[in-house]
Write a protein that binds this DNA or RNA. Structure first.
Lengths: 157, 157
DNA sequence: ATATTAAAAGACCTTTTTGTCTTTTAATAA
DNA sequence: TTATTAAAAGACAAAAAGGTCTTTTAATAT
């Protein structure tokens, strides 16, 4: 049962998870020539439909992707735009200080006045930062391109 | 202003942060021959007093440390007990799945069916796991022993 | 015994997060 | 132009996290 989150903190909050999964799914479909709508996105990324709608709306308002109303409408990335690093999305939702603080939660903790965990957490924070900076919605979508669905079939069995 | 969390997710939730700081503070004081009470703990770790009381209560109920009521009372660790790894405390509060899940939030994600971020998150999860397994309340308290206060003076200026 | 001290228990409240639903707006098709 | 489709907007609600306060229990000191 590895990887099944039953309780406890995940790495990101729900809104961020749904946003990242939604964006990647849209990009995957765009690569295939489709513009998915809210109902399809929600079903494919296993998220609540109305909540998904609200989140996609916010992402459009932030300018991360575009939407088209009415028949044949849906969500799409403008092709001329640069790739979108996960960090940009995460920070837009969770704030700029995600994982920037000291692991021990002290209000003041820096190199001159480190708390006991500060030094040990520093490389971890740096790794997370690298990961979300280097991975983009597009790079993840390319990884998924060609797969049957984003959930890799495991949810459908 | 490095290390100041203004908004966004910290590594742990508030209850966990207060619990870890409280436990380390109690152990630091124990090493000096004192048994701190709720008011003192709350003030020194910069946490809400009543909430701190509730949290300390829960920690005692879990058996992590002992308490003595009445005059001269307070909190203390039984000396014969083994060192307490942070992981034990964190899991008691946040559940056993903290940071065990896949970074991308997929319900099913394991080595055979990894999501794009799974492999990249694996070493980070392992580092966090090592950190909270190897560090104990006592090892951190030894680091703090001799310092003026847990907040390293930076909050008092 | 009585007063005092301090933790335990638990009711209650506030804020944030997560989620639902209805109404409105805009695009397309007939 | 009318019907249909689908996103936008925003009100509303449930659940979880975070926090406050009062009352009770247990220990000590006089």
């Amino acid at each position: 049962m590895t990887g099944l989150i039953t309780k406890g903190k995940a790495v990101f909050n729900k809104e961020t998870e749904y946003a990242l999964r939604g964006l990647v799914y849209v990009q995957v479909q765009n690569y295939k020539g489709f513009k998915p709508g809210i109902a399809e996105i929600a079903a494919e990324i296993d998220a609540p439909p109305f909540y998904t709608g609200k989140i996609m709306q916010r992402l459009v308002k932030q300018g991360f992707l575009s939407s088209i109303k009415g028949k044949g409408g849906g969500f799409l990335f403008e092709e001329q735009k640069p790739e979108l690093p996960l960090k940009i999305v995460i920070q837009a939702i969770e704030g700029t200080k995600t994982y920037a603080g000291c692991g021990f939660g002290l209000k003041h903790c820096d190199e001159e006045h480190p708390c006991p965990l500060h030094e040990q957490f520093a490389p971890i924070r740096n790794s997370i930062n690298d990961l979300i900076t280097l991975n983009t919605v597009q790079s993840l979508a390319r990884d998924y391109h060609g797969l049957d669905n984003m959930l890799l079939g495991s949810l459908r069995r």
